[in-house]
């Protein structure tokens, strides 16, 4: 089956982000396809490389990065939600005149159209949130 994943909550604050990761990983390991993981609302905070949890805790951002590297996952952060919450890549830094970036590797910033497209292209859109 071809899945699309929507993550609506930030890391650590809410289990939705963990559950989305566990589901995505399990689906891929079972041989399913994941068309795209789309991060929306506070979910965009999963995509900052500045995340620094205590060493004895899971590293949520790095887990996504590792999964994306292994399975060539498309991790998309919503641009409108990212702008509100200060998630910045090179393009956004230039466009908005900011002095830094914080997007994690393997993540990319793009528009809400990517979420709609994922809904159209996939057999199931799974929403993880509150």
């Amino acid at each position: 089956m071809k899945f699309a994943i929507q993550v609506n909550e930030g890391p650590y604050q809410h289990q939705a982000s963990d559950t989305a990761y566990q589901f995505t990983k399990a689906a891929l390991e079972k041989g399913h396809e994941v068309f795209r993981v789309f991060f929306y609302h506070d979910g965009v905070n999963n995509g900052t490389r500045l995340t620094t949890p205590p060493q004895d805790d899971r590293h949520i951002t790095n887990r996504w990065i590792d999964l994306a590297e292994k399975y060539k996952l498309d991790l998309v952060v919503c641009v409108a939600a990212a702008q509100r919450r200060g998630i910045v890549d090179d393009d956004e830094m230039k466009r908005q005149g900011k002095d830094a970036t914080n997007i994690a590797p393997q993540f990319r910033i793009s528009g809400l159209g990517q979420l709609i497209e994922a809904g159209i292209q996939s057999d199931r859109l799974m929403v993880f949130g509150d």
Partner: peptide, 18 residues
């Protein structure tokens, strides 16, 4: 912010004519 950001999805999504 869910309501506002939901509305943003609906408006952008409208371009896809679903």
């Amino acid at each position: 912010v869910y309501a506002l950001e939901s509305l943003e999805v609906v408006l952008i999504g409208a371009a896809f004519e679903q």
